[in-house]
Amino acid sequence: MSSNYRLILYHKHPSSGRTLFLRLHETVCQFDGLSTASRVVESHVGGNQVNDNLSDLLTDAEHRLGMANGTLTIDREFNAVIDDADTPIQIYLARFTTIDPPQEHLAEHAGKFIALTEARRLLPTELELLRLAYSIIMDD
């Protein structure tokens, strides 16, 4: 995955609507996280904001997580740009397509699914991104 892209990965239960975000190595911005100097400079929510073909990005993420192809899908209504030490980083939102979150599998990779209320210790930029993402997810 290019260092100029990050994915926020989430699972929304199809029946209950419970939404959990994947925190991996103390970040929800996979796979390289963000610096403390990062800040949101642009965000797009609603509509079809993602025009790129991101299949390679998803395939790489699935491979890194040891998941099957098709386990992740891009949420096309969310896109943000972060300024991280004068480097623009594109942030995309991707959903796990499984019925239940693959908690046990990702625990083997030091991953944990967290609710929005458990995100308080994340960087302020990550909290802002989760707030924006959550607004899209709940409209779904």
Rank of each mutant, 00 (worst) to 15 (best):
E42D: 12
D100M: 10
S55I: 00
V45A: 10
Y92D: 03
F78A: 05
S35V: 05
R64K: 12
D100I: 04
D83N: 15
T27Q: 06
R18N: 14
G111N: 08
T87K: 14
V28P: 00
V28S: 04
P14W: 02
H44C: 08
H44S: 13
E104A: 15
E77K: 02
H44D: 05
A107D: 12
M67L: 15
M67Q: 14
S55T: 06
F96T: 10
D52L: 14
S16A: 05
V40L: 11
A68S: 15
P88C: 02
Q103L: 14
V81G: 03
L58S: 00
L58K: 00
D84M: 04
H25M: 03
R18W: 05
Q103F: 11
M67I: 13
R23I: 03
D60E: 13
L20V: 07
D60A: 11
R76C: 06
A37F: 03
E42I: 10
L58G: 00
D60T: 12
V41M: 07
S55Q: 11
T97H: 04
R76Y: 04
G70D: 12
A107P: 13
V45F: 04
D52Q: 15
T73D: 14
T87V: 12
R23C: 11
G33S: 01
N51V: 09
D32H: 15
Q103P: 00
R18S: 12
E42G: 09
A61W: 07
D100G: 04
D32L: 14
V50S: 07
E77D: 13
N48H: 15
I99G: 06
S55A: 08
A61F: 06
S15Q: 14
D60G: 10
G33N: 00
T36H: 13
N51D: 04
G111P: 09
A107V: 11
L57P: 02
I82Q: 03
E26Q: 09
L65K: 10
T27H: 03
L106F: 08
A85M: 12
L58M: 04
G46S: 03
H109L: 15
D86S: 14
S38C: 02
V40T: 09
L24I: 06
H25P: 07
G46E: 02
T59M: 09
E108Y: 13
H44V: 05
V81L: 14
N79Y: 08
S38I: 00
R39P: 00
N69H: 14
V40E: 03
F78H: 05
G70Q: 10
P14V: 02
V50K: 11
N69M: 07
T19N: 01
V50R: 08
R39F: 08
H13N: 14
T73Q: 15
Q90A: 13
T71W: 08
S43I: 09
L72W: 00
Y92S: 05
V28D: 00
H13K: 05
D86R: 10
L65M: 15
D75C: 07
S38Y: 00
